[in-house]
Structure formats: structure tokens, C-alpha cells
Design a protein around this nucleic acid. Structure first.
Lengths: 190, 190
DNA sequence: TGCTGTTTACCGAACGTTCGGTACATTTTA
DNA sequence: TAAAATGTACCGAACGTTCGGTAAACAGCA
């Protein structure tokens, strides 16, 4: 059928968007990365670049859901479940060498489906962690804040990794994530 | 002399780069935002867009150094100094509504002066916090990691703010920053 | 002071290139 | 052979950049 199969095509598209952002992901670059000419790309994605970005976001979201978030809902000690998530995130972001699409595609994209998708993905991610933390005994409010904190730390360490070229902070963040999230809540301060 | 003075010019340039990233900051957009025609921009910045981005980075770095990092070196309780930094960061990022240039300009920019500048800026920032934490009694290693953590949290919460449109996580991150950084180090775990 | 040459700041128009996108012919597959 | 997938050739628009030139401020000197 296709000279290049859908999954691999999406892989390469993802790579381009992650590296260059939305505006930097020109059709020339995409064409070069995928081996498909402009017209062939428009055959696969009649909606053009916007549809490519959406497809890439959708797929990344599905992968994360299936591999990183799904373990959170299973049985076993909470710390273990969080470690599984961290492991998958490490894989997804290639140890900090790859950017997050939610960051890369948040510049220059005004509104529309892409923005909506981003917002929803972020919420899904936070909610999944928060739900798990609540089931582990944390209060609703603490669980929510820590879940946000977890995503914040991951995103921030990816930014730092990209800006400095050093992946260590990212890996350390992932490693410390489980215990940070599960630590005893400190009493409210004066 | 100038129809638009240097500081205000840089303000508007900063705004464009923050919002759209490097590739998204087209000369048309910059021209519209500054009120200067393309050619006039090249009078101010003979090096073109790259020089504009550099100038913007330089200025942002100087502002942060003078307003957010300098208080860290002064006298007074550490927590108070950190609160002053957080206050200035809140101002700089307009409560989470503005992106960080270190993030925005990290896509699509291959290498060269801009990349070097980013790397240096990130290091300066982390070092300033780490030095202060060390002076507050934290061990060198803990201080370094927590300083990285601080920057990570700020960057991450900005990403989240941008992706979700909600500024609360950013503000909460800033508010909690001082106590998070100064809390007693936990003993090494099993 | 008045004159003159230089500098500063800006602009309109155009440069060649690349952008995202399309019509249509050709190849591949079933 | 019909349909699906890909390639060739091209479009108008926008890209970053440069050129030639204008108006005003500034300089030195009589």
C-alpha cells in the first residue's frame, strides 16, 4: 500500500514537530524527514500541516495514555506504579533529548483544534496522576496540586535539558518523582 | 532621533519572540509590533533577526540579573530573599501569561550565539540560587539540585500555564518556592 | 550667525528564496 | 484494469534581506 507505513510516518512527523516547533516544521523539512513529496503528504493529510500536527498530538496522547498513564490505574504499590510511569516517560522523551509536543506546539499556534487538543491532553495527564494520588490516601486538594507539580517538573526539566544540553536534571526529576509525590503532606504553616 | 526609543523597541521585540518563538516571529509581525518597517529594523539590527533575538535575550538576562538575582546576594533572611526573587519573576512573566525566552527560542534555533547565550543564562540563574542556598547552610550537592529544581519548576509551570491558559499553577509554584528550597534535607533513603 | 558636509533614522521597493498548497500525470497495488 | 498512492511541475504569497534614497539632526568652520 503505502511506501511508508502510517506508524513510521507519524514517528518521523513527531520528530520534526518536536525539534522545530510548529512554524519551524516546514513542509520541506517534513518532506525530507518522511521521504514523501509535498503532494503525497497532502494525500495523507488533506488538512495540511495543521492536520499533521493534530495527528501527531493525537498519537502521542494515545501512546502516553496506553503506556504511561494506564499503569497508574492498575494494582500494586503506588510507588511502583509511579515508577512505571516514570520509566515510560523516560522512554517517550528519550532521556530528555526530545521535547514535549505540548511545549513545542504551544508557540505560534493561535487557537483551534490543536490548542484544544493540548489543553485536553494536559488535563488528562494531571487528572490521571491526581486520581491515583487520591486513591493512595492524599486529600483531594493535595493530590491535585501534586499532580500538577509532577507535570510541571517533567515539563520544566525538559526545557532545562533542551536549553543546557544536559539530560541529568531530567533523569533526576523522573527518579525522584515517586517519592516526591507520595511524601507525607506537611501541616499547613503559620 | 529615533521615532521609537531603544528600550521600548526591545520591549516590543521581546513580546513578539516570547509569543511566537523564533521562527514564528516573522519580520512582518515584528514590523507591525514595533511600528518600524523591515528596512528600518535592519538599521537598528544590521545582523537581522538573529541579532534581534540576541539583543532581546541579553536584555532579559540583564533585567533578571539586576532585579531577580541580585536580591539573593543581599542581606536578610534567606526566605525573604527568595520571596523577593519570586516577586520579580512574577512581574517578569506577568503572572504566567508570558513565556520564557529560554523556552521560546529553544526551538528551531540550531546553534550559534543564541544557543550559547541561552545556555549561559540558564547556568547563571541556577548558580545564583545554588550559591544562596549554600550560604544558607545546605550542602553543595543539595543546593545545586534544589537550584536546578527551582528553575525547572518555574519553567514547567510556565509551560503548563501556556498550555492550559490557567495561571494558578504558576503562581502557586512561585509562592511555594522559598519554603520548598529551604526545607530540611531528608536523610538519604534505603 | 549662516553655510556646508556628515551622520542618523527611517522608508518603499525589490531581491532571490522558501512558504503552504494544488492540478495533473504516473506509478504501484489489488 | 480500477483505485489508491506517489511524483512532477507549478502557483501566489510570504519569507528574510538588501538597495537606493529622503528628511532631519548634527558637526565644524567662517
Amino acid at each position: 500500500m503505502s511506501k511508508i507505513a502510517e506508524p513510521e510516518l507519524l514517528n518521523r512527523l513527531t520528530q520534526v514537530f518536536r525539534t522545530h516547533g510548529y512554524e519551524g516544521a516546514s513542509l520541506s523539512r517534513i518532506s525530507k524527514a518522511t521521504g514523501l513529496q509535498r503532494a503525497s503528504l497532502y494525500h495523507r493529510f488533506p488538512g495540511g500541516k495543521a492536520e499533521m500536527a493534530e495527528a501527531v498530538l493525537k498519537r502521542a496522547g494515545e501512546w502516553l495514555q496506553a503506556h504511561a498513564l494506564q499503569p497508574l490505574t492498575e494494582s500494586g504499590p503506588p510507588e511502583r506504579r509511579l515508577r512505571q510511569m516514570a520509566e515510560k516517560l523516560d522512554e517517550f522523551y528519550e532521556g530528555g533529548r526530545q521535547s514535549c509536543l505540548l511545549d513545542a506546539l504551544s508557540f505560534g499556534v493561535e487557537q483551534g483544534a490543536i490548542r484544544d487538543h493540548q489543553r485536553a491532553a494536559m488535563k488528562t495527564w494531571v487528572d490521571a496522576i491526581a486520581t491515583m494520588l487520591r486513591e493512595s490516601g492524599l486529600s483531594g486538594r493535595t493530590a491535585q496540586e501534586r499532580a500538577e507539580d509532577a507535570v510541571i517538573r517533567i515539563q520544566g526539566s525538559l526545557v532545562m535539558a533542551r536549553a543546557t544540553g544536559d539530560q541529568m536534571p531530567f533523569r533526576r526529576t523522573l527518579r525522584n518523582l515517586p517519592q516526591e509525590l507520595l511524601r507525607k503532606p506537611e501541616p499547613a504553616r503559620a
